[in-house]
Write a protein that binds this DNA or RNA. Structure first.
Lengths: 216, 216, 216, 216
DNA sequence: AATGAATGAGAATTCATTCAT
DNA sequence: TATGAATGAATTCTCATTCAT
């Protein structure tokens, strides 16, 4: 090979890295192995990414980009909040299985080894979602689709917490097992039930006050 | 026989290990450093625990025991579900700060490196909580304190998801930053607001149906 | 044919190499960096010079050529020996600062790494100077300008040793510091004193016997 | 092996390092090879010395200690200056052959790779010699054994320059070849001539003024 | 039984050199 | 012929684990 790495080759390298990091974590993953699996020399990897950590971050960013673009189309829809919530839950359930490596990458940064990136990465990753969710809730509040006695940012936080745990539960080994213990061994075959139950959980959280008012 | 170390010494060794693992993660933590900090020889550490991984698991179990015993008193109370929920949220908020090391240990097992323990550990760790929460919810359903059209195990799951994320958010660097982005830089000084908002979120989730019925 | 590079380009390449080698030494210097700084591709560098070592030698030879041509005009003068010595000391002092890179190159070959060139290079480099100095001294002996009970080759050797150390002392970091320790921190501002003192040192060495004779 | 390294073992390690560094230089020397040759594991080497550079400095310091102790007895003698000079020249000639590795180590620090230690090392190494020589010359001036119109520190500098070059000339490959070119292929068999010639060179340098005075 | 010095496999990283374009 | 991307051998350094004392 002599020509500059093609877009596809770079894709392949990142995918190989993601697979390795997702499985082994930043520390146990072996740069030489990644290079071999990607069909390149370590030299290339270092020329392009400088060091292991930077390469890891490149893999992570790619993972997040994919996740983000998957979510974007759902978030950008013009539906009412609960319809959107349902779409999002469905999307999360689907892509968590399909892109489990990406989610494992995301999970990886939350643990010890990557501590020093915590602040930067959080800002980079969560700001968009956070804002989107908050605005979504605020709008729903203005529209009267949602109770008005809440802090929209905190409710966005709780909502994202639930979706985050759902991601992990469909992608990461430990959380998968945990979900089975809570919901039953066959939970992965009961996707519709999971969706409808989570919707119930959310629906009331979002709308309680409304009915309360009507009730009075 | 291996009985020379006192109970207290073992405590100290495990605490030292927990501090190191919580800060650095399983891979970056250094067994020799842990031994030195604990005031013992590596030899002892290996006699007792066989290898690094096993020692890590011992530290993890200790962490979980502490967390469990902290939660137990709350779970075992005889209050109504929302009162209990409030107690639990308060407990989580308090101990997440105090015992952040333990929670970081818990977080550590969920990421890549520890994959092979996933199943065993999940069973060992989550079963108790899962059962407690489910029963709690079932009882509340029977007592009419909670809507009856839900799957109690799944609601227990969602509830635990929220508490788990809360733990992380008060203990682990990345999640801490994430919480600030969602809820504001000063969120750590607004504990009461966080509690009341989460209660609102839960309260309606748990009771929606009830009001619905009354409403009709 | 390999004639595409202009003379000037070759000059530039060698100068870049000399700068890099003088600063970092043969081993730590990086061929790729040199090529980049010289505005050529490594390929060209390898086409022209074969390998790093050969390129280093080319840089070294250029350095020595410059030094030699600088010294030549002084050596070739027709003055009496002490006048010539003074001219040489002045020349050395001046060009050691100006061409410090070249002298660092010379210094570099005297240490471990370049052992295998030792013999060839010494012959190539020192023969001219050695002969020039010896003849200079012999002539002075015949002319009665210098004591006659000495071995002119050895005196030439001592003389060159002093000049060599003077070169290093004005060019190479370590020797610069050493000179300050011996002669004072401000020695680099006392050029004239250095010259006159060294002349005194030499003058007597060269002429002692003469005065001795007269004295008797 | 399990007991702490004995004094002798440390000696052996340093000697092995010195041999390797003297031959190959700091960069080309291979830590793994040194460890193997010294009969230890790399781990020990790194436990004791931290990194390659620090180990190199330890080897260097050992070299210098040996050289210093060899010179000390001569410098400390109570003879007149020229007698002492002769003793020193003889000492240098003898130990330069015997301890050529140590001198090659000294030579090594003067070149590129070790640039960053230049200042510290020069202070550490040269200060003692510098002071000793200067005082020696000042005393000789006061005693009337030496001409009085000189700067003793500069003369000490020239004197040390001559001895330094003599060391290199009997120890380091390049300088050895150079000496042969200047003084003849058989120079290494004409030690007495070298000594007497260098003494003549120095003697007059030191005493010229005296005869001058008498002469008038 | 306890110690902790020693081990050495393993992993990250560099950079001289090659060779397809 | 020139290019410079790609190669991969080589080297430094770490640290889990062993075992003589």
């Amino acid at each position: 090979m002599l020509r500059k790495l093609t877009e596809e080759k770079i894709e392949e390298i990142l995918e190989t890295g993601i697979a390795e990091f997702a499985e082994k974590g930043l520390d146990r993953a072996n740069v030489n192995v990644i290079a071999k699996n990607a069909g390149i020399s370590v030299g290339v990897l270092y020329k392009y990414y400088g060091d292991k950590e930077t390469f890891f971050l490149a893999c992570l960013r790619k993972s997040l980009n994919v996740l983000e673009s998957v979510l974007k189309e759902v978030v950008d829809s013009e539906d009412k909040i609960l319809v959107r919530a349902e779409k999002m839950i469905r999307a999360v359930q689907a892509y968590s299985r399909k892109y489990s490596n990406y989610i494992n990458m995301y999970n990886e940064i939350t643990s010890g080894g990557s501590k020093k990136f915590a602040e930067v990465l959080a800002k980079e990753i969560e700001t968009v979602t956070s804002k989107a969710y908050s605005e979504l809730i605020e709008k729903a509040m203005r529209d009267g689709d949602i109770r008005s006695d809440i802090n929209p940012r905190m409710f966005a936080f709780f909502f994202d917490n639930l979706l985050t745990m759902m991601q992990f539960s469909y992608s990461c080994d430990y959380y998968k097992e945990r979900m089975k213990i809570f919901c039953g061994e066959d939970v992965e075959n009961r996707d519709e039930e999971m969706i409808s139950q989570l919707l119930k959980f959310l629906e009331s959280a979002f709308t309680f006050n409304q009915t309360e008012v009507i009730h009075k």
